[in-house]
Amino acid sequence: MAHSGKRIVKARESVERVKLYKLDDAVKLVKERATAKFDETVELALNLGVDPKHADQMVRGVVNLPNGTGRVLRVAVFARGAKADEATAAGADIVGAEDLVAIVNGGQIDFDRCIATPDMMPLVGRLGKVLGPRGLMPNPKVGTVTTDVTAAVKASKGGAVEFRVEKAGIIQGSVGKASFGEAQLAQNIRAFVDAVAKAKPAGSKGTYLQRAAISSTMGPGVKLDLSTITTAGAVGA
Rank of each mutant, 00 (worst) to 15 (best):
G91W: 07
D25Q: 09
M120H: 09
N47A: 11
E32K: 15
S14Y: 00
V75K: 08
N64L: 15
K167G: 11
V72Q: 12
A197D: 03
A237C: 10
M58V: 15
G143A: 10
L123Q: 12
A2S: 12
G135I: 03
G128L: 03
A160D: 06
D148S: 06
V42S: 02
T217C: 05
D110S: 13
K177W: 03
A155D: 14
V77E: 07
I171N: 06
V196I: 15
A2K: 08
T228P: 02
L29K: 02
G176A: 08
A116Q: 10
N67P: 03
V95N: 07
R190G: 01
I103F: 00
K200H: 08
D51H: 07
V222K: 15
T207N: 03
R71H: 15
I229P: 01
R33Y: 11
P140Y: 11
I109D: 05
V63Y: 02
K83E: 14
T144K: 08
V63T: 04
P66C: 13
V18P: 00
T88F: 08
T217Q: 06
Q172I: 05
N47I: 06
T217E: 09
R190L: 01
V145F: 06
D39G: 14
R60P: 03
P122G: 04
A199W: 13
L20C: 03
K129P: 01
T35P: 01
K141D: 13
T207Y: 01
A232E: 15
A90W: 00
L123D: 06
V63W: 04
L100H: 05
K6H: 13
V95M: 07
F38S: 13
A152W: 04
V95Y: 12
V63N: 01
T217N: 10
Q210Y: 05
R71C: 00
V145T: 03
D148H: 02
E98N: 14
G135K: 03
Q184N: 15
S14I: 03
K141H: 01
A102D: 14
T217P: 08
V145Y: 02
A76W: 01
V42L: 09
K10V: 10
F38R: 15
G135P: 09
A87E: 11
I115N: 10
D99T: 12
G181L: 10
A168D: 12
H54G: 03
Y208H: 09
V50G: 10
S174E: 02
Q210W: 05
P133M: 02
A11F: 08
R33W: 00
G236P: 04
G68Y: 01
I94F: 13
G81W: 01
G49A: 13
A213M: 15
P133S: 08
V77I: 11
V104T: 09
T146F: 02
